[in-house]
């Protein structure tokens, strides 16, 4: 079926004009892409993700502590100390500690004690974060660095 507008052969002398138009179009699209560099943050305003928590002695094996500000659970076991992020891997709500794991209020993801997903839409387990010790003896959690699940910090 023919279209509404007639097709016309491209006259030769229009070619240069068209090339110019395309160049202009490319320039405009290019500069729009370049302009997106401005709103793209190169430094995230949250700054470092490292924060100090208590001394190891304050957290004897078998106890745990929820840090609501930092959205982290510190868990101390005979194998060492672990920091598990409480940010749901689905869409970023804060999970609640339950008797045998974690539950997310937003879309019902459920995680086991070690952070594994056992139900709901979360695509992966809760993040384990790097734990280290500062010179003053206090523990430091690095919220920006994920470690393998099950890797404990030995005091």
């Amino acid at each position: 079926m023919p279209g509404r507008l007639e097709e016309e052969a491209l006259p030769r002398r229009d070619f240069l004009g068209l090339a110019g138009l395309w160049a202009a179009a490319v320039a405009v699209v290019g500069s729009i892409a370049g302009m997106m560099r401005l709103p793209m943050p190169s430094v995230l305003p949250e700054g470092g993700h490292r924060f100090r928590v208590g001394r190891p002695e304050e957290l004897p094996a078998g106890t745990e502590q929820v840090l609501p500000e930092q959205k982290v659970l510190l868990s101390s076991t005979p194998e060492g100390i672990a920091a598990i992020s409480l940010v749901c891997t689905h869409l970023g709500c804060i999970v609640a500690r339950t008797e045998n794991g974690f539950a997310c209020p937003c879309h019902g993801s459920v995680f086991a004690n070690d952070g594994r997903v056992i139900g709901g839409p979360a695509p992966s387990g809760l993040k384990w974060l790097e734990v280290s010790q500062a010179i003053d003896g206090r523990l430091v959690v690095n919220g920006g660095r994920q470690v393998e699940s099950g890797s404990y910090f030995k005091v």
Binding site: P68, E69, K71, C93, I94, P105, C106
Partner: peptide
């Protein structure tokens, strides 16, 4: 930021 609305 520490406590999500439930349900959100």
């Amino acid at each position: 930021p520490a406590i999500p609305e439930n349900p959100a």
